[in-house]
Simulated assay, not measured.
Amino acid sequence: MKSFRLNRLFNPVSKKCFDVAVDHGFFNEYQFLEGIENIRSAIEMVVQASPDAIQLTAGQAKYLQQIPGKQKPALVLRTDVANVYGASLTTGSFSKMIEQAALQAVRLDAACMCINLFSIPGAPEVTGQCIDNIIRLKLESEHYQVPLMIEPLVFRPNSDKGGYMVDGDIKKIISLVRQAVELGADIIKADPCTNVEAYHQVIEVAGDIPVLVRGGGKTADEEIIKRTAMLMQQGASGIVYGRNIIQHKHPAHITRLLMDIVHGEATLEDTLAKIQ
């Protein structure tokens, strides 16, 4: 039955997935709310661009799932919350999982669940909590047959412009991606690396588990389009972008341009010409 839900995530022709993350309000960071202050409006705007999936929390999934019709994006349910994104780590850093996450996913008609696997300088205890969460959720995932998307994230030190900054070291990314696969991931949502031309190594270490690449911080249009094209050429199974969509002046437009790249419906040159 997991394959049935996975079929809802991936385009039937390209076999790729473009997922828009709109779960940033979960993490108690004011700067994460830019573009999603009105969550209902933000979700409706993204839905108009028809991405393959939208990543939301249990508290906000209703705004997607109450939209009528069969063609709306699949729901990716965020299952864990953390307090590790500020300019400095607190003495009580944590990653906590919602209760009975897989049951909530079933009730919300989610196509899969997303959970973090952090590697944060100065916070090894949070990595341990993430592993505990994944071990628990893996059993629920199998019981309810809801696919498990593990998000291995290698942070730079929080003092470098706050948390959630991509480290970019491919060796660290490879190691954490492999650990996520070993823990039972059905899908990987991974960091990009500094040298995008080396990303095939991340794809290789994940084996037959599809790898979706996250965006990280806000990036200029031309750069994010070029990087997306290169990642797809390296063998990525899709993309998960959040702030590069929801904080854009024209979210629906940039979503369509990036989807054309992901699904192979437009060349890089044609897409760059349509930025304006």
Rank of each mutant, 00 (worst) to 15 (best):
I134A: 15
L183C: 11
A74Q: 05
D260H: 03
T127S: 06
V81L: 14
P152C: 12
A252P: 03
F118K: 03
G92E: 10
T90M: 10
Q234S: 14
V202H: 06
D80H: 12
L56D: 05
D270P: 05
L77M: 14
M149W: 09
I261T: 01
F155D: 12
G122N: 02
F4H: 00
C114G: 06
G242F: 06
A123P: 08
V47P: 15
T91E: 07
N83I: 04
I131F: 07
P192Y: 09
G184W: 12
G86D: 13
I224G: 15
G163E: 11
K96Q: 12
F4A: 08
V177F: 07
G184I: 12
E44Y: 13
D270V: 14
S3F: 04
Q55W: 02
D167W: 02
M113W: 09
Q55T: 08
K172V: 04
E265N: 10
R227A: 02
N28K: 08
A123W: 04
I245Q: 00
F10K: 00
V126D: 07
F155G: 02
L231I: 10
K70S: 15
E204K: 13
F118I: 05
V81E: 11
C114S: 07
E34M: 06
K2E: 02
T127A: 04
I245W: 00
Q201T: 03
M232H: 07
A180S: 15
S88H: 11
I43W: 11
T255E: 01
G264L: 08
V126A: 08
S93R: 06
G92W: 01
A198L: 15
A61L: 00
Q66S: 12
R136K: 14
R78T: 15
S159Q: 09
P192D: 10
Q234F: 11
G215F: 13
I173E: 01
I225R: 06
Q104P: 00
G92L: 02
N11V: 08
S119G: 11
I173L: 13
T79K: 07
G242H: 01
V106F: 02
E182A: 00
R243A: 00
S41K: 13
A101P: 12
V76Q: 02
G69W: 06
T271R: 02
R78V: 13
L33H: 02
S175E: 12
S93H: 04
A111H: 01
T267K: 03
I39G: 05
I254S: 11
R243M: 05
G122K: 04
V205I: 15
Q129P: 03
E125D: 07
E222R: 02
A123T: 00
H24Y: 03
Y30E: 15
L75K: 01
V202P: 06
I150Q: 04
I120A: 14
L231P: 05
Y199N: 11
G216L: 04
R8E: 00
V213W: 00
A49R: 01
R156P: 02
C193Y: 01
A123S: 07
Q55P: 00
Q179K: 05
S14V: 07
N83L: 04
S14D: 00
L268M: 12
G162Q: 02
P157Y: 10
V106S: 08
G162Y: 00
L64F: 08
K62E: 14
R214T: 15
V202W: 06
H24P: 11
A180V: 05
P124A: 12
K138D: 03
R136N: 14
E29F: 11
D19N: 14
G69P: 08
T79A: 12
V126G: 06
G235A: 05
L258P: 01
A220Q: 15
K70M: 13
A273F: 05
